[in-house]
Amino acid sequence: MNAALITGASGQDGSYLAEQLTAKGYRVVGGVRDVARARDALPSYLRDVVELIVWDMSDLSSLQRVIATTKPTEIYNFAAYASGAAMFDDPLGMADINGVAVTRILEAIRAVDTKIKLCQASSREIFGEALASPQTESTPPNPRSPYGAAKLYADSMIRIYRRRYGMYACSAILFNHESPRRGVDFVTRKISREAARIKLGLAQELHLGNLDTQRDWGFAGDYVHAMWLMMQQDKADDYVIATGEAHTVREFCEVAFAHLGLNYRDHVREDAASFRPSEPVPLVGCSAKARQDLGWEPKVSFRELAHMMVDADLRDLRASTN
């Protein structure tokens, strides 16, 4: 039986991957900071399936013990300080957990069993304000935040260990990926939740920043499937995972509100205090390499994603108010 260790297993990406791997017959171990809290955060049908253990990213000897005890064939690392509005919070902690800690994982694998495969969840934030669009695996990195810089360091160490020690280590350069499990501090979930609240008469307005900001948004479940495909190849490599489509925050609002029979113009207000100019070029990824090498392509469209998120928030809010 294949065994997977998923760090950050109770988060959006980790929970979708745990769902997919258990369906494939994997034994799934979830490495988390707080077992009790993580169990509550997991979908109910995963709580008795995923074995949760404490994962201390700051302690190399602890990581070695966990890996030696659980004996995974694959490790997926989602454990990281949050992106979004928190990208500049605690830059020292960000550097350690999002960057240096990946080196600890690599060292732990090297000490326990170099046959264990590792997939690192990287980010399009390594490109920062790119000078050309779309961004590919060969786009020069130019991080603009501590978050992006830490992810770039982790990617560099992945490549170094792959070349130096022949380890199966790869980075998935993930562009924005959303779902009903996305945190409410991210703009897409903020839109879907507030649209549902307005529909139910629980709110009247939604204040956002620049509505013309463009992003490449995909479904988290599609993106973690791409990471699994990366781990099934004969040779480890890094891949951009993206839809290749750029959409504005305004478009997301339009689709989300229209799904509920609402006109976003009646409810959405641009907040001058939160307004940031749009990037010089669209932040959109080219996943041609993943499509060719892995046979991967996104299944959920932009419109379907927005509808999925709105429907989930509407169900949750109705349940909580009844």
Rank of each mutant, 00 (worst) to 15 (best):
L131R: 13
L131N: 07
A132E: 13
P134W: 09
P134H: 08
Q135N: 07
Q135M: 15
T136D: 03
T136Q: 04
T136I: 04
E137D: 13
E137Q: 04
E137Y: 03
S138T: 14
P140W: 06
P140E: 03
P140I: 04
P141S: 06
P141F: 05
N142F: 07
N142C: 11
P143Q: 09
P143S: 04
R144N: 05
R144K: 08
S145V: 03
S145L: 03
P146H: 05
P146F: 06
P146I: 05
Y147P: 05
G148R: 07
G148I: 05
A150G: 04
A150E: 04
A150H: 07
K151H: 12
K151P: 03
K151C: 03
L152Y: 02
L152R: 07
Y153H: 10
A154E: 02
D155I: 00
D155N: 13
S156K: 08
S156N: 09
S156F: 03
M157W: 08
I158Y: 02
R159N: 11
R159T: 09
R159M: 09
I160L: 13
Y161P: 03
Y161G: 02
Y161K: 04
R162V: 02
R163W: 02
R164P: 00
R164I: 00
Y165D: 11
G166Y: 02
M167K: 07
M167N: 07
M167Y: 08
M167Q: 05
Y168K: 10
Y168Q: 03
Y168A: 13
A169P: 03
S171A: 14
A172G: 13
A172N: 05
A172F: 08
I173S: 00
I173Y: 04
I173V: 13
I173E: 01
L174H: 09
L174A: 06
F175R: 06
N176A: 14
N176R: 08
H177W: 01
H177K: 08
E178C: 11
E178S: 14
S179R: 09
R181N: 12
R181I: 01
R182F: 01
V184S: 14
D185Y: 15
D185W: 10
F186T: 09
F186Y: 15
V187N: 02
T188D: 10
T188G: 07
R189Q: 15
R189L: 06
K190I: 05
I191P: 02
R193Q: 15
E194S: 13
E194I: 07
A195C: 09
A195K: 10
A195V: 11
I198Y: 08
I198L: 09
K199I: 00
K199V: 01
G201M: 10
L202W: 04
L202M: 15
L202R: 11
A203M: 06
Q204A: 11
E205C: 03
E205G: 00
L206R: 11
L206D: 10
L206Y: 11
H207W: 14
H207Y: 15
G209K: 10
G209N: 12
N210S: 12
N210P: 11
L211R: 15
L211Y: 07
D212S: 14
T213C: 10
T213K: 12
T213H: 12
Q214C: 06
R215F: 15
D216P: 12
W217K: 01
W217P: 07
W217A: 13
G218A: 14
G218Q: 12
G218D: 10
